[in-house]
């Protein structure tokens, strides 16, 4: 059965100007991510993983080529439309957790739902259920500085999945945590993928992530060097 395509990259290039030098970060790359995938972009530093992730996340725009999310081309969308797209259809999990420090775990997890204007009651139900799922229901009132790195990353995952986005982009999500915590986080994301059909796209160096990913896309010098199902 053909699964619905969530992300489509058509011949995208990203060229940065560094002084008089032109640096090609992404070189005419084409890629499709289908619904329910658990995929990882990997490759050496400077291979263009994060740049690709940023372009899929509508945080950066390609120098040429098209980024299509759920059938909509991002080129030509204004700032407001891109902001709305990020809010409603894309979840982000960053390497450094990036929680809002003055908000509690609960408030961080409900952040995007509040921006969407979801009614308080529904918000509460959804956030508490997600916090339960990520194992943080008891720590809902704690602020980020009262949580461990792994717990903070769980809150970030809860924040990403709460609005039920089309895809979650996770940039080195296990880079700042120990091995046991990394495995716990990967278990959690794998379960969300298997049980809820949440689509994940990782950018990673971490072998543990690559071991779990069901599709591995290797990038080298801004190009896809290999793309295949993980053994």
């Amino acid at each position: 059965m053909n699964r619905k395509s969530i992300v489509e990259l058509n011949q995208i290039c990203k060229i940065y100007q560094q002084g008089k030098l032109q640096v090609t970060a992404v070189d005419c790359l084409s890629l499709q991510i289908a619904q329910g995938e658990f995929s990882a972009l990997y490759g050496p530093s400077g291979s263009g993983k994060t740049t690709v992730l940023n372009m899929i996340g509508a945080l950066d725009e390609p120098s040429s080529g098209d980024v299509i999310i759920e059938g909509k081309t991002l080129a030509g969308m204004d700032r407001t439309a891109l902001s709305r797209l990020r809010r409603d259809r894309i979840g982000f999990v960053f390497q450094a957790y990036n929680l809002v420090p003055v908000l509690t775990a609960y408030e961080n997890a409900e952040f995007v739902l509040a921006l969407q204007g979801v009614p308080i009651r529904e918000r509460r139900q959804r956030v508490m259920s997600i916090l339960e799922e990520v194992g943080l229901a008891d720590l809902a009132d704690r602020r980020p500085d009262e949580l461990s790195g792994g717990q903070q990353q769980r809150v970030a995952i809860a924040r990403a999945i709460a609005p039920e986005p089309a895809i979650i982009l996770a940039d080195e999500p296990t880079a700042n945590v120990d091995s046991a915590t990394a495995n716990g986080l990967l278990d959690l994301m794998e379960n969300l993928n298997s049980n809820k059909g949440v689509t994940f796209l990782f950018s990673t160096h971490d072998q543990r992530v690559m071991d779990r990913a069901r599709r591995l896309i290797e990038l080298k010098d801004g190009k896809i060097a290999s793309d295949g199902v993980s053994p």
Partner: peptide, 16 residues
């Protein structure tokens, strides 16, 4: 500044 970047990335509009 980083925090503003994050909350904008999450979809907070400029006016907020």
């Amino acid at each position: 500044i980083r925090e503003f970047g994050i909350i904008k990335a999450l979809g907070m509009p400029p006016w907020k």
